[in-house]
Design a binder for these strands. Sequence first.
DNA 1: TCAATAGTGTCTGTGAGACATTATTAA
DNA 2: TTAATAATGTCTCACAGACACTATTGA
Lengths: 247, 247
Amino acid sequence: MVNRASKHDGSASAAVTVDLVIFTVLDAGLRVLLIERGKPPFKGELALPGGFVRVGEDLDQAALRELAEETGINGNELYLEQLRTFGAPGRDPRGRTFTVAYLALGPNLPAPVAGTDAATAHWAPVEAALASELAFDHLAILREGLDRARAKLEYTTVAAAFCREPFTMAELRHVYEVIWGFPLDPSNFRRKVTKATDFVVPTGELRTPEIGRPAALYRRGPAALLFPPMPRSADGEPASYASSARV
Amino acid sequence: MVNRASKHDGSASAAVTVDLVIFTVLDAGLRVLLIERGKPPFKGELALPGGFVRVGEDLDQAALRELAEETGINGNELYLEQLRTFGAPGRDPRGRTFTVAYLALGPNLPAPVAGTDAATAHWAPVEAALASELAFDHLAILREGLDRARAKLEYTTVAAAFCREPFTMAELRHVYEVIWGFPLDPSNFRRKVTKATDFVVPTGELRTPEIGRPAALYRRGPAALLFPPMPRSADGEPASYASSARV
DNA sequence: TCAATAGTGTCTGTGAGACATTATTAA
DNA sequence: TTAATAATGTCTCACAGACACTATTGA
């Protein structure tokens, strides 16, 4: 019944997978989860984690399940959104597959566990990942995920998804600096974040570092969108966005 | 070979379709292309145009082909981007299907021709379409397409995709007013558009209406992104965006 | 002349970049 | 007291909203 369309009019019946671009921010910089493929095709090569969508499973469910299998974490306290679907005819040597790419952002995630399909999984520096070869069309997916993440920091509050609660203003700023790749003025950053309604909520607590003045602590506020947006252009870097494929 | 995954691990092999949210701006307001389904399921009900992705066909190709079949236009001078993929298990009574939803924006498109699958096709006022019942999960897709279009006007130049070249400043402003649903100050609008680099290019020509001062004519500029963005909040309407599904 | 639409100029508030200054801790 | 980090304050420029005013056409 599912394949009813594959004969009489040349329609494609195909396998559907989800692939995940999972970012986390460490002190050192932005990391993406890569696996080394444990079986063909592309056995032994680096790839994004992912796998087949199961019968009776919704796309978001499949993404969350793969996330749990590959990293050992469950999706709570994690941001997840669909990126785009890739379905070029030649993208999988085994036959026609479509992959629904997801973007996942999380705070300082645990060391990943080797999953079912993955021989090994590790947090790769994004710079290195972009310069390496990845299986399938995963390099293009990674690029698009990075572009999307960069853009989303501007007008949403997802940056806070990278911070384990409670967090300091400097930690939140660090997220922007690592993902955008240039420093922000601490003073102006604080002003923007605190003026924006419901971006962060002060806990009233302080955290005292080994040295220096204690920092106020915050939790994520209820707002999903950031208004006014966090400016990214003007200086620092030219505002180059992603997507917008004009045909 | 394509179905290799469907047996041993519960993976889904399924049909993949594309569905299109095609908007155009008429004087009267924003319109979306709807068809009346010519065959089951949902025969006789309203739906978005779309159809099965064919073997050897990429997703964008499939979207453009469906567009041509359902409306008789080819994709040139038309904006097309992927919206999101919908794959909830129960969305198609025939069995498991995934649909890749596309957003298409075009100027004042011709009266649609009844296509292969479509009994009838017509430009429905968006307000009416949102209030009606649509086949499958097409109402949710339509909502998401409208949200995306509204958001994209802010920080991209897609509004010009609704205008047939050459166009006047008032025509471009009309696009914003119709899609956002509130009036914009003509003076400030002109200042923004002309100051933004490469949004529009003056042709030097004028168009004289039946009555009133002739208006300068413009063509679309090379810029895809609009910086600084066209502000949508402050007044008029609260800035409510789309997507950003926090899990 | 008037009606109607196109386009310019100006005032003002607000937000952002730059950067100086003050505050609070441990050693 | 010093080093180090956190937080506040201030100046200036650019931009957005409001709106008055001028320009150009046909009737």
